[in-house]
Simulated assay, not measured.
Amino acid sequence: MAEWLVERGIGETRAALVDGDSVLEARILPDAALVAGTVAAARLARRIPARNQGIAIWEDGEALVTPLPRDVTEGARFNIEITRPPIPEPGKPKRALARPTDAPPGAAPPLEQALDGPVRQCDWRDTDRLERAGWSELLEEAESGIFRFPGGEGRIALTTAMTLIDIDGDLAPADLALAGARAAAMAVRRLDIGGSIGIDLPTLADKATRHACAAAIDAVLPQPFERTAVNGFGFVQIVRRRARLSLPELYAQDAVLAHARALIRRAERSTGAGERTLHAHPNVIYAIDSREDWAVRLSERLGAPVALRADPALAISAGHVQARFP
Rank of each mutant, 00 (worst) to 15 (best):
A295K: 11
L245G: 12
I264M: 14
I288W: 00
I264L: 15
R242T: 08
R301S: 12
A287I: 07
A280I: 07
R309W: 08
V239S: 05
L302P: 00
S246C: 11
R309Q: 12
V256T: 15
G303E: 04
A252E: 11
W294N: 01
W294S: 01
S246A: 15
S270C: 14
L263R: 00
A267H: 04
R242G: 02
R269C: 10
R241I: 06
L302S: 01
H259R: 10
A273Y: 10
V236T: 08
R301A: 15
A267P: 03
A310N: 01
L250V: 09
A243L: 12
V306W: 00
F235H: 11
H279A: 06
A267Q: 01
E268F: 05
Q253M: 12
E275Y: 03
E300G: 11
L302V: 06
A280P: 09
H279M: 08
A307M: 03
R309D: 05
R291W: 03
H259A: 05
I264Q: 05
G274A: 08
H279R: 12
S270V: 15
R241S: 05
R276K: 14
L263T: 02
E249M: 15
E249Q: 15
G303N: 05
L263E: 02
R276T: 10
A262W: 01
L250P: 13
D289W: 07
R297Y: 01
E249G: 10
L257F: 10
R276A: 12
T277M: 12
E300L: 12
L250F: 14
T277K: 08
R269M: 13
P248F: 14
E249D: 11
A262E: 13
L247M: 13
R297A: 14
H281Q: 12
V236I: 15
I264D: 00
T277G: 07
R241G: 13
R309Y: 09
R242N: 13
D254H: 07
E300M: 12
D254G: 06
A252C: 09
G274E: 06
I264Y: 02
V239T: 11
V239C: 09
V306E: 00
A307C: 03
A262C: 05
P305W: 09
L298S: 01
R261G: 03
H279S: 07
R276N: 01
A258K: 03
A252L: 15
S270N: 08
T271A: 15
P282Y: 06
A304L: 02
L247V: 09
A273Q: 13
D254E: 06
L250Q: 14
V306G: 00
V256P: 00
D254W: 09
W294Y: 14
P305T: 06
R291N: 12
R309K: 11
A255I: 07
P248W: 08
S290L: 05
H281F: 08
R269H: 13
A307T: 10
R261K: 07
V306A: 00
I238S: 03
V296M: 04
Y251R: 04
G303D: 07
N283T: 11
V306I: 15
G274K: 06
L250K: 04
R309H: 15
R240D: 10
G272K: 10
A252F: 15
R309N: 08
V284F: 06
S270P: 06
E275P: 04
A273E: 12
T271G: 07
P305L: 09
L278N: 04
A287W: 01
V296E: 11
V284Y: 04
A273V: 10
E249T: 12
Q237I: 09
A243H: 14
